[in-house]
């Protein structure tokens, strides 16, 4: 499913962001992330420090050793990314610039929502089918758990989810409010 860069480049929605700006934000975001890790996240969520002394008295790396090295390496890279953008004319043919605009976020939001709905459909299709067949007198299960190992109740959620995924795709082809 991978594609050639030219094909992907044609795709994103036009977002009015100056060329180079997104790389600047990525650099600054990386620095902020590093600061957050070093000052807040690591001290609270890692059990041992950068170095520790073991039972034999030797100095050995703690659990923070490698994470600190990793985020430490991010700092010069982010700084270089920022500097390369500051010193370059906008639209220069250097580091490729992407964009993530409101249209993309809207699409992601819709996808998340429809995926959540699909999962709910998957979760509820089986119990609903048991309830229906019980109500019609076709089965007499005490509940979904009693029926969940037998056909078609074991696969009903899967097909419910597939149908929801299909709906999700086609919903993206429906005319949007902005187009009308």
């Amino acid at each position: 499913m991978s594609r050639r860069p030219e094909e992907t480049a044609a795709a994103p929605a036009p977002v009015p962001v100056p060329a180079g700006r997104w790389n600047l934000w990525i650099g600054l975001g990386t620095l902020a992330f590093v600061a957050l890790c070093l000052l807040a996240w690591f001290p609270r969520d890692i059990g041992s420090g950068f170095l520790q002394t073991n039972l034999t008295g030797r100095t050995v790396p703690g659990d923070s050793f490698f994470p600190i090295l990793l985020v430490g390496l991010m700092v010069p890279l982010a700084a270089l990314l920022i500097l390369s953008q500051l010193g370059t004319a906008r639209g220069a043919d250097g580091e490729e610039v992407g964009s993530l605009g409101p249209a993309n976020l809207g699409f992601l939001g819709r996808s998340l929502l429809l995926t959540a709905v699909s999962l709910l459909v998957m979760n509820w299709t089986g119990p609903a089918l048991v309830w229906l067949t019980n109500a019609l007198g076709l089965t007499a299960f005490s509940g979904y758990r009693a029926a969940s190992a037998s056909f078609p109740f074991d696969v009903s959620g899967f097909f419910g989810r597939w149908h929801a995924a299909d709906l999700r795709l086609h919903s993206d082809h429906l005319p949007q409010a902005a187009d009308v």
Binding site: T30, L81, S84, E96, G98
Partner: peptide, 16 residues
């Protein structure tokens, strides 16, 4: 790709 610096930051992020 055409964005090596970002690629390297991405690699470190993947490790993290």
């Amino acid at each position: 790709g055409k964005a090596p610096l970002k690629g390297l930051i991405g690699g470190l992020l993947g490790m993290f």
